[in-house]
């Protein structure tokens, strides 16, 4: 099995899905009891103005169990994880956490992950960091390396093979 491309797995991860589903179920019970659809979360949502994300509707859909509709929608990927919705909800509901869990479920169900997430994940699994050390531009139009900036070597996993083992067992875990 190719270990580096978690995001394009052909087969859905059955056990992983089960665990995430349990998490969602717990969230569902919580929101059903507490969310009264005041939409305060949506009124401050950073993604609402520009991308029409409506966290209160995410909560309402979860209440009704319309999970497949959500994991098949690009909407869940527009959250900026600013945590305003969680901070300001009068009922201590956290739409942002529901969104994280829905995205996890989408990935575990073999859905296409949008944008550069795949590149970040591959880099993290390979070298431990979401990107490798860059040469950066200066304002004067030149470039500088980390070393030229006077910095010591960058800290990375000492034994990449063992490190990969650690995170692969998490990513592929059968519960």
């Amino acid at each position: 099995m190719s270990i580096t491309d978690l995001t394009s797995r052909a087969e859905a991860q059955v056990a992983e899905r089960k665990e995430i589903n349990e998490r969602l179920q717990k969230l569902q019970e919580e929101v059903s009891d507490f969310c009264y659809q005041c939409a305060k979360c949506t009124s401050g949502c950073e993604a609402h103005k520009l991308l029409e994300l409506e966290p209160h509707k995410i909560v309402a859909l979860l209440k009704r169990g319309l999970i497949d509709e959500m994991i098949n929608s690009d909407m869940i990927w527009t959250c900026m994880s600013c945590f305003k919705c969680k901070e300001r909800c009068p009922q201590k509901v956290a739409p942002v956490n529901i969104l994280f869990t829905l995205k996890n479920l989408a990935v575990a169900s073999g859905k296409q992950v949008p944008g550069d997430f795949t590149a970040m994940l591959q880099s993290a699994m390979g070298i431990g960091l979401i990107q490798d050390i860059q040469t950066v531009p200066t304002r004067a139009g030149e470039t500088k390396t980390r070393e030229q900036a006077g910095l010591p070597p960058c800290s990375k996993p000492k034994d990449p093979a063992k490190f990969q083992q650690t995170i692969m067992t998490v990513a592929m875990e059968k519960v």
């Binding site: 869990t101 996890n104 997430f117 994940l121 431990g128 979401i130 800290s155 996993p157 000492k158 990513a171």
Partner: peptide
């Protein structure tokens, strides 16, 4: 400065929250 650090996992939380916790 210590050797051996990796990503904290937060940028990958949308993919897998267990990964974030472990990292």
């Amino acid at each position: 400065d210590l050797e051996g650090f990796s990503c904290c996992g937060e940028p990958l939380k949308s993919i897998n929250q267990m990964l974030t916790l472990t990292l």
